[in-house]
């Protein structure tokens, strides 16, 4: 393959299309990122940057010692776990339904379903968040409280009750993003060779065993992608929660990104915000690794494509 002579022209071309993008990436993305890492060991404040000094692990120690941080971490964690499980369980379920086949008969309207399921995901989190906050969840015209009242139960105030507040962004998130997993699992299921199921049919397997013994193991690469993308999106979640609850009431919906935003935008604490950011990066990397490793184990050894 490499025997073809590489002319100077080819070399120049290679250098240009490699180096120019790289310079941009370093200048705009990588450089600032590393710079913020170095500043996470200082007390850099936006208001008096010239006075900032090195404080070692000070920011990280402050962070780990504050009870507020652990509360925020637990909110982030609950939000992330539920938003990984709930939309994607629905997605796997629906992807199985749409590929159902009985004696050659299949589901009607598959194309319409596949196209229009995309819509909530294309809409901005900001729009869906603001709209559902008013029309689904609010106390005066929200349809959810109207229905609860109809059932004879005293409706809660979703934005004041600290125990319930997190339910609001979680369910809205589910509404927006269940289709993300659906599209990917759907494509995955369509790629499973029919012969896999025929053998199962001969052996008289029930739908449930077919799902756990054939479908799910075959979906491992898709699972890896969906889980990691959902994990990332949830762990760094800002838009939806900001527009729906602003992190309140109290700290009940304040996730890590919101806390970082507030400490930077409100108090100008760049050093501390950087430490929080880097905590988010490292914890995210570790959790992703955990997901990949736990998926790699198991009876079917499918290689996980990156």
């Amino acid at each position: 393959m490499e025997s073809v002579n590489k002319t100077t022209k080819d070399k120049i071309f290679k250098w240009i299309i490699t180096l120019l993008p790289l310079v941009f990436i370093v200048a705009v993305l990588l450089g600032p990122l590393i710079w913020s890492f170095t500043k996470s060991f200082t007390d850099y404040s936006m208001y008096r940057p010239e006075q900032s000094k090195f404080i070692g692990l000070g920011n990280y120690i402050d962070m780990l010692q504050s009870s507020r941080f652990w509360k925020i971490l637990s909110v982030s964690f609950i939000f992330t776990v539920v938003t990984i499980v709930l939309p994607n369980v629905i997605a796997v379920f629906l992807a199985n339904l749409i590929n159902m086949r009985v004696m050659g008969k299949t589901i009607k309207g598959k194309t319409i379903l596949r196209v229009f399921f995309l819509i909530p995901m294309i809409m901005s989190e900001t729009v869906v968040g603001a709209f559902t906050r008013v029309f689904l969840w609010s106390g005066d015209i929200g349809i959810i409280n109207f229905l609860i009242e109809k059932m004879g139960i005293n409706p809660p105030n979703w934005f004041i009750d600290e125990k319930l507040a997190l339910v609001v962004p979680i369910l809205t998130y589910t509404l927006i993003y269940f289709s993300f997993g659906f599209i990917i699992f759907d494509a995955g299921i369509r790629n499973i060779p029919g012969s896999f199921y025929e053998t199962a049919l001969v052996e008289g397997a029930t739908p449930l065993t077919k799902f756990f013994k054939i479908t799910l193991p075959c979906l491992k690469p898709q699972l890896a992608i969906v889980l990691i993308i959902t994990l990332t999106r949830s762990w760094r979640q800002y838009d939806l929660i900001w527009i729906m609850t602003r992190g309140g009431p109290g700290l009940s919906t304040q996730v890590l990104s919101l806390r970082t935003y507030l400490s930077f935008m409100r108090y100008g604490e760049f050093g501390y915000a950087s430490a929080l950011s880097w905590f988010m990066i490292i914890s995210l990397a570790l959790m992703s690794l955990g997901i990949l490793l736990s998926l790699q184990r198991g009876s079917f050894s499918y290689t996980i494509e990156k």
């Binding site: 990436i25 913020s36 500043k39 990691i228 990104s257 929080l276 990066i281």
Partner: peptide
Amino acid sequence: VILGLRFIPLVALTFPLFI
């Protein structure tokens, strides 16, 4: 590295850019 950048929390990049 580029794959990693895709998963970086936005806060980590937006604030240094702001300064």
